[in-house]
């Protein structure tokens, strides 16, 4: 008589679901972004969100800080302009680069997104061409804003 090495157990549907969920708990998390080769497509996409959050964060913090003006009258434009005026030039220029680069990048890349939304430039070549154009425009406009304005 042949001997069987495989056994089957009859379990209830609820026990089956429990077993399934036990296995689901052991599932690995899908690979994260850092396993992918950096490419213009997804790197610029990620930077678009990061720069947007950064600029919007500064905007929110600024607007919310002004709510304290009735309590601390020193929180106003005159004091801020005075404080910035007294900063060393190297610091002002660095801060301008740090602020202008995310802002100009997000603006130019935003225009790129609006172009895509009209259905234009949605080829591999088009995406790369507009990507490099956005990078160049951001750097050039940042240099202009930080050093020549």
């Amino acid at each position: 008589m042949a001997r069987r090495f495989v056994q089957t157990n009859s379990i209830s549907e609820m026990e089956g679901l429990k077993l399934l969920n036990t296995q689901r708990m052991n599932r690995p998390v899908s690979p994260h972004l850092d396993i992918y080769q950096p490419q213009v497509t997804w790197v610029l996409s990620g930077l678009h969100r990061i720069t947007g959050v950064a600029v919007a964060g500064v905007f929110y913090v600024g607007a919310l800080t002004y709510l304290l003006h009735p309590i601390y009258p020193a929180i106003d434009s005159a004091h801020l302009i005075e404080a910035v005026h007294n900063l060393p030039v190297w610091f002002k220029t660095s801060a301008k680069v740090a602020f202008a680069l995310p802002l100009t990048f997000h603006s130019f890349n935003g225009i790129r997104h609006l172009m895509w939304d009209t259905g234009k430039g949605l080829t591999m070549k088009g995406v790369y061409a507009s990507g490099y154009a956005v990078m160049a425009a951001s750097v050039i406009s940042t240099i202009y804003l930080a050093f020549f304005v």
């Binding site: 607007a63 919310l64 003006h69 434009s77 801020l80 302009i81 910035v84 005026h85 304005v149």
Partner: peptide
Amino acid sequence: VGIYEFNTNDIGLTELCEKVWKA
């Protein structure tokens, strides 16, 4: 509220950017 207050009581966003940038 902050934007409204800054716009009505102070110099507003655009002028703030211009003046801080050239400070």
